[in-house]
Amino acid sequence: MATLKHINSKNADYGAAEQYLLFEHDEFTMKPVLDENGRLIPREDYRLSTLNCGGEDFAVACMRANLRYGKNQRREDVKGHHYIISFDPRDGPDNGLTVDRAQELGEKFCTEHFPGHQALVCTHPDGHNHSGNIHVHIVINSLRIE
């Protein structure tokens, strides 16, 4: 059984969400983990896709759409929404859930529930404190372009 969590964001830096999904972060401070040379450490395993971004980077596509339609320009505007679908660690062995299948489910959930929104869908195979639960992040621009 999966659980769904929602977080709204007033952060205008859409790239920050992508950075969180692609690079290691300290689970307590939420700050990026750096190597001995001060560089970000990529996550070992993930699946990533974008929807309704027209071939552009998610952050660039969101900023362009916001400027085009004059939306999300004020500090108090909710710029995006972050959803996390967390699966039970037993869903892998008991139900055959894989990272690829979870990514497919996340993309399907996104297209069904957020049509017309620019979206970033990213699946991680490890949960909080490496509990082993597969989870899907869905980050959408609050502006619906279609």
Rank of each mutant, 00 (worst) to 15 (best):
K31D: 12
T111E: 15
A65P: 07
H25D: 00
N133R: 03
D13W: 06
A102I: 06
F87I: 01
G54M: 05
T3W: 08
I145D: 04
D126P: 02
R75S: 13
M63A: 15
F114S: 01
I140G: 07
R64H: 13
R43A: 05
F28C: 12
T98K: 07
L40G: 08
N72I: 06
S9I: 00
L21W: 00
E18Q: 14
G54D: 05
M30Q: 14
D77E: 02
S49Q: 09
S86I: 05
G55T: 04
H137A: 04
H25Y: 12
V60Y: 01
H82Y: 09
L143Q: 03
F23S: 07
I140R: 02
E104N: 11
T98C: 08
E18S: 14
A59V: 03
L40T: 10
D88G: 10
Y46G: 00
N141K: 07
L48V: 14
P32Q: 08
V121R: 01
N11G: 05
Y14I: 03
A61I: 08
V99W: 01
Y14C: 06
P93L: 15
V121P: 07
H6D: 00
G15T: 08
H135T: 07
L40H: 06
A119V: 04
H135C: 02
T123I: 06
V78N: 13
L143P: 01
R101Y: 12
I145V: 14
L143Y: 01
L105K: 00
S142H: 15
H81V: 12
S9W: 08
L51G: 10
F28I: 15
K10S: 12
P32R: 02
